[in-house]
Amino acid sequence: MKTTRVIDLVPHIVLIAGVLIFAYPIYVTLIGSTWDSGTIGRGGLPLWPGGQGAANYAQAWAGEAGDRAMYTPVRTMMLNSLVMALSIALGKIAISILSAYAVAFFRFPLRMAFFWLIFITLMLPVEVRIIPTYKVVADLGLINTYAGLAIPLIASATATLLFRQFFLTIPDELLEAAKIDGAGPVRFLIDVVLPLSRTNIAALFVILFIYGWNQYLWPLLVTSSGDMETIVTGITKMIGTGESANDWHIIMATTVLAMLPPVAVVVLMQRWFVKGLVDSEK
């Protein structure tokens, strides 16, 4: 009995240690956002909350000048990031559902050719095609617009493949039953395929929202004005290089705020997963 209890304990200790290692930097960020820049600057950050929290967050949110520089207000950056992440996530889901539906349920000339074309784009990540993409977006006059931020990132081979695989598991007989019931392709998509895919959609939404929220290279290139700054690029720009000292208290408050939407999406969507699992139908 004793030995099994010890053996049970080991994984727990390992897990707790893991959690501490991962959580510690976040904790430090959280604590840092409640102290003034002087305390942080001296390198002696205490491990308990300070009294400057409200002021720091207000300053970051409204974008009042820090001690050393002017920043884009967090509320602007959050809005930009939110628009970008939502457009990317929803756009990717919509486009990939439609293309997967076409590839999985319809027979048309060059069907497999299109499928492979989509597949090949998997081998070309954003970074590889960034210069031609930039050229196209610039020629279309989309620099410093939401469209320019989101559209080039919307096409998604991964999500298309995922949905295609899922659609292939929907039995043919279901499609045939719907045909006899009188449902055309659009109705079948809306009434049958989408409801059956909702847990897949929820899972993909979480992944794609975070993917969109964390975009760095592309927003850096395609935005130049402060109004269009996204929060991830904004934070990195706050951290000066070389001589200049940083407003660490504002940076940390901004970082904490930047974490909130992805966390909220995960927490809210988790409910959906569970719901999807509980009334699971095959």
Binding site: E173, A177, I180, P195, K282
Partner: peptide, 29 residues
């Protein structure tokens, strides 16, 4: 088209819509 032939079909694997209630399954057509 099947829908215009005025027929109804019963499949081997039932082919019921898994996300609909029994009522909705029957009412859908």
């Amino acid at each position: 088209d099947p829908k215009d032939r005025d027929i109804a079909m019963v499949f081997q694997n039932y082919a019921l819509y898994p996300h609909m209630t029994v009522f909705d399954n029957m009412a859908y057509g």
